[in-house]
Amino acid sequence: MKLDSTDQRILRELRNDGRLSNAKLAERVGLSATPCWNRVRALEEAGVIEGYAALLNQKALGLPDTVIIEVKLAKHDERTLERFGEALADLPEVVEAFLVSGEYDYLIKVAVAGTEGYESFLRRKLYRLPGFQDSRSIFALRCLKRSVSVEP
């Protein structure tokens, strides 16, 4: 789907506030309600808009610390990668996970409550995942930018 400038304005507005009513969105992008609604539907159907979500404050939820973890697997066959990936996706502490190139196989972002919470996550969960071999961790000191998607 080729995006025109109106589509891009719609996407920027929804990226900033996914709860905008269609009337307010239409007003902000300079359309009447029906054409705006049709464009949003087309963007959803084309998969440009994948969904809508609430952003939760991890500190308010008792998980103030973010840790970035590089994980190395013992083997790299399809079954090991699949089993590890599925098990990883089921862990509630995992905010994001990527299969990556390089020395390590996965890059994982987790939300935990301090070093005790992190140790518990490592020992009771991560180390027990199928295929796990080694990890290296980095505690985030402060978040400088947080976006839920790319800028259109």
Rank of each mutant, 00 (worst) to 15 (best):
N16G: 14
V148W: 13
L122V: 11
S149H: 12
E70Y: 12
L31M: 10
G18Y: 08
R19F: 12
N16Q: 13
L14C: 14
Y104L: 02
Y127M: 10
T34A: 13
E70V: 02
N22R: 14
R19E: 09
E103Q: 09
K125H: 11
G47S: 07
A33E: 15
I108N: 05
E70K: 12
I10A: 09
T115C: 09
N22P: 09
R142Q: 06
L129D: 01
Y104V: 01
V112W: 07
S5D: 14
S32C: 04
R28S: 06
C143G: 10
L43M: 10
P35C: 05
P152N: 11
L126Q: 00
D17R: 13
A23Y: 13
E116C: 08
V29A: 08
G117K: 08
I69C: 02
P64E: 01
I108P: 03
I108A: 01
Y52H: 10
G47F: 06
A74C: 03
T80A: 07
A46Y: 09
D65C: 01
F84N: 00
Y118S: 04
E70M: 11
P64I: 05
A23V: 15
S137N: 09
E119R: 14
S5H: 08
G47V: 04
L11T: 08
V94Q: 00
M1N: 08
S137D: 05
E78F: 10
L91V: 09
E116Y: 13
L25T: 08
E50P: 04
E151T: 15
T115R: 15
Y127I: 05
A53S: 10
D105Q: 00
A54C: 01
S32M: 03
L20F: 11
C36N: 12
E119Q: 12
E93R: 09
L99I: 07
N22L: 14
I68C: 02
I10V: 13
C36L: 09
V148L: 15
K109N: 02
G47T: 01
Q58I: 12
V112G: 02
E151R: 15
L25Y: 10
Q58H: 15
E45K: 15
E96Q: 10
G18W: 08
F132I: 01
S120D: 12
V29F: 08
C36K: 08
K2R: 15
S21V: 07
S101G: 12
R123C: 08
L14W: 13
Y104P: 01
V40W: 12
R83K: 12
K59R: 11
P92L: 03
V48T: 15
V94D: 00
D77Q: 02
L61D: 01
A53Y: 14
G85Q: 11
E13I: 07
M1A: 13
D7S: 10
I138Y: 14
S135H: 08
K125Y: 03
L14M: 14
L3E: 05
E70D: 09
E119K: 14
R136N: 00
L81K: 11
T80E: 04
G131N: 04
L14E: 11
R9C: 07
V148S: 13
